[in-house]
Design a protein around this nucleic acid. Structure first.
Lengths: 141, 141
DNA sequence: CGGCTCGATGATCAAGATTCTCATTTCTAT
DNA sequence: ATAGAAATGAGAATCTTGATCATCGAGCCG
């Protein structure tokens, strides 16, 4: 259950936080902007301010509940942290986001960092392309 | 010479454009924010507006003369496009940026994209770490 | 269950980065 | 040199995100 995760992070269990968690859990794309979450809240009749959405997402990020990603657009997208690390492929046409994990790349990254005298702490890898060779069946984000 | 590149891109050869190219060429870090370029222009006595810097950099990007990167900070950084593609390692401590190219990673990226039904067009890979294990000799950006 | 205390919220404002507007200036071709 | 088109500068505008502050509600204690 998620309310325990909230408490564990020292956050009170409030309606805005639960609603936002719920939206993140039930989202089909699993990668939402703060604005998109805000709009879903409005659509479901919740009177929750945009500032609260940003504040809550930032707290969730600090608590390790969500990841903040900077894909192509100007807005950050947030995804629920479910288990492991992964990287992303974004379709230039429809904005669809897919996830992948590749041990070969992870290993090479560590080797490259070591060769340059860096101890790697994190990385960001995003592939951009066109999905399904022009018959892209998804709508833009 | 660079003025020919400007003409080739359909851009008039103007003083702001030449000065900005010059700064990009002579920069030691090779990765500059628009603000940093603007400050260098002011320091060298040029009366060039920040809006022009952004405008020119955007045009240079469209012409393939420079790359725009989103590293850690909130500001984009620009680097002169010299030959080949490469990715970046950024030091969390001092902000230093190093470049690398790894065929293994490039190949794996193409394979992964294909497996997901994507034709890859571009990618962004940034490694974040600490350089030289705590004895970081460089200043913050 | 009722109240207390502090964290959470909402509304608005603010900040930072980047782009836009528009009058003026500067290239470039003629 | 001159006209026409494009570029510039200054500032306003925009977009995203974080800050402020008064009000509200969650959680704890009796």
């Amino acid at each position: 259950m998620e309310t325990s995760d909230l408490k564990k992070a020292g956050l009170k269990v409030t309606l805005p936080r639960m609603k936002i968690l719920e939206i993140l859990e039930n989202s089909e794309t699993r990668h939402l902007t703060a604005e998109a979450i805000y709009r879903e809240l409005l659509d479901s009749g919740e009177e929750i301010g945009l500032a609260t959405v940003y504040r809550v997402l930032t707290q969730f990020e600090a608590a390790g509940l969500v990841c903040r990603l900077h894909l192509e657009g100007s807005q950050a997208v947030f995804e629920l942290e479910r288990g492991g690390h992964h990287d992303h492929i974004v379709c230039n046409q429809c904005g669809r986001v897919e996830e992948f994990f590749d041990e070969t790349i992870e290993t090479r990254q560590r080797e490259i960092a070591r060769q340059h005298g860096f101890s790697i702490k994190d990385h960001a890898l995003v592939l951009y392309g066109d999905c399904s060779d022009s018959a892209c069946p998804h709508r833009p984000v």
